[in-house]
Design a protein around this nucleic acid. Sequence first.
DNA 1: ACCTGAACACCGTTCAAGT
DNA 2: ACCTGAACACCGTTCAAGT
Lengths: 215, 215
Amino acid sequence: MPTHVRAPARVPLTRERILTCALGLIDERGLDELTMRALGSELGVEAMSIYKHVPGKDGILDGVVELLLEELETTRSTATEWRAHLAEAARRLHALSQAHPNAFPLLRRRSVSAYVAGRSMAEQAMGRMVAGGFARGDAICAMRTVVRFVLGFALSAPAPGAPAGAPEVAGSDYPLVEALLETVADPACEDGLFEYGLDALIRGLRPGNTAAPPP
Amino acid sequence: MPTHVRAPARVPLTRERILTCALGLIDERGLDELTMRALGSELGVEAMSIYKHVPGKDGILDGVVELLLEELETTRSTATEWRAHLAEAARRLHALSQAHPNAFPLLRRRSVSAYVAGRSMAEQAMGRMVAGGFARGDAICAMRTVVRFVLGFALSAPAPGAPAGAPEVAGSDYPLVEALLETVADPACEDGLFEYGLDALIRGLRPGNTAAPPP
DNA sequence: ACCTGAACACCGTTCAAGT
DNA sequence: ACCTGAACACCGTTCAAGT
């Protein structure tokens, strides 16, 4: 039995440990700070060891997206009304974006994964719409619109470490724009704005407005 | 008069030439391909020369955003109805996102610039809303919501070079989700989806729904 | 005054070598 | 079998040196 102090019980490197660590690193330090070398040092290992368990950095990012989406609450909702259903699905996705603001942009070009992860929620919501008089293509458009709204709302959010001060708009010939810019600088307005937009969007949806298919 | 062939008339490097070239490079090859070295070779110059005219790569990206927003059509609209106004402003911004899909993501964390560039359009649209019965804070929320919708719609668009095939959703227990995924794979649906979402959103907006200020 | 060459501190990734 | 060290081809950027 050796007496020298060694790494206690040497936890083996696995895909899961790598992904969990990567998500944690992104959450705490930001996407740019996720570096093979930084990830390795966080795992107590040289960067090159990671490649034995994962196809490369892109593979890690894909895995992080999987991990993220596993957190999507997919509990069945009891609401039978399609608007309430849709709003609830939207709020769950939005909550995920708030829980992981640094990692959420990874969904930008992987939105298909979001539908797969939330398939039971999405299927149920569209089912309610169809029951509420929507044609199939109609319900699909409405669903996609809401999802894009939520994704886009998060992706177009002002930066966490953004310049806080509102810029002066020349001469104040634009009083409303000036007042608007002051609210933009205030991150506390975000949640209210999301609810405002979601309510408006859902209120505006209704059966019979299928987007025209391409010519 | 020297007889050897030389760079014809040696165009001097300027901030403007650099920015124009950078936007062109992004449009043609994508954001990732914008490299100081690639930009230099495009300009017929070593990468390091660029630093004499521009504060660095971030400065170039800021400049490209300026350039982009100069293309925003801000012609006065003749419509007096606030909904028509708002829709027109939204369509102009959307058109910009379609004209420069590779560069548009630069607006992600610079949305303030968009309001500054489109200030006359935004001021006019909010003015019409106030005339239509909106309170000031009300009109601001509505304006911000529409802008976020347009920005977000572009930012959450599927990748230009994305995997075209829709993934199989296990067992087809989710027929509506499956049908939805097929439309997601088709980029031709994008324009229709934008109009569908914009119409719904604007239809849902109305005076008297100010988002609650933070507690 | 404007441009260049060589260099620095970083990336992701490969590969032969260690244990 | 799993991890490491040194190396490669790239980044953005600095700075002394050329013209």
